[in-house]
Computed example of a mutant assay.
Amino acid sequence: MDTDARKAADRLLEVYRTGEPIDPLTPEHPDASIELAYRIQQLQVEEWTLGGDVVKGHKVGLASRAIQRQMGVKQPDFGHLTASMFHLEHQPIAAERFLQPRIEPEVAFVLGRPLTGPGVTVAEAVRAVDFVLPALEIVDSRIRDWNIGIFDTIADNASSGGVILGSHPVALNDVDLRLAGCTLHIGGELVATGAGGAVLGSPLNALVWLANTVGPMGVTLEPGHVVLPGSMTRAFPVRPGDSIVAQISGLGSVTAVLDTKEEQ
């Protein structure tokens, strides 16, 4: 398995260097397991950390019915968030960092205690959360034209791209995340509305799912780490020059500015 995983990981890593997307991996691995897909993901994370990047959290992908229908899958997945993926709100983000960017509005959990599965309950997840923030996730794909299945997106680090966090922390007991409504504006135009209940019934359920999924792999969700539980709406394409604002009731707003590409 490791030989196949290494070859696929190298192909995906090359996309980061060249900016040229590749064809889907699924036709080359038609009977491959989800375990192989996560091994491909992990090999890339190991390369990034060897190069000096640092894991700062995790994301749950494909957590809402809207996203699952959009991507043609039926189950969540997870990916790693590294320090280089985090961007300050209101500050220009170089569009050249991304290939096929889309935007998703989310709640971000910031942990104050470790969470180690399996067996994590909602009560334990609540105790582990230090505070929550509004967030925008830039999802991206190294697979040409977003032509992905569950194997492709897992191998491609759950289609991770970038994270923008709001700057006003809110205590978890001050907001009901299930009922928290969300609006998403791109370029001043309202493109979507959503609610926290779209994310596995509650974003907290996604946090529990993540802890219990990565725990058997030897991974602990660490204090200070950020967990993105999944999008409250479907994902929308964004372009250089776009300004994106998500407003989440009880949490406030977060703004991302996608700058124009630098001249070559």
Rank of each mutant, 00 (worst) to 15 (best):
P30K: 09
S33V: 09
E35P: 07
Q42R: 15
V45R: 10
E46F: 08
W48F: 15
L50Q: 15
V55H: 02
K56R: 05
V60N: 02
V60W: 04
A63D: 00
A63R: 00
A63I: 00
A66V: 07
Q68S: 01
R69W: 09
Q70L: 10
K74E: 14
Q75K: 14
L81K: 03
M85D: 02
F86Q: 12
F86W: 12
E89S: 11
E89A: 01
H90S: 14
I93S: 13
A95K: 10
R97K: 14
F98I: 00
P101H: 08
R102I: 08
I103V: 15
V107K: 05
A108D: 04
G112M: 03
R113D: 08
R113Y: 10
P114Y: 09
G117I: 03
G119I: 07
V120F: 02
V122G: 03
E124C: 11
R127Q: 13
A128N: 07
A128K: 04
L133I: 06
L133F: 11
A135K: 03
A135E: 02
E137M: 03
E137G: 06
E137D: 10
V139L: 04
R142G: 04
R144C: 12
R144T: 13
D145V: 10
D145S: 13
W146L: 12
W146T: 09
G149I: 08
D152P: 08
I154Q: 03
D156F: 06
N157L: 07
A158W: 00
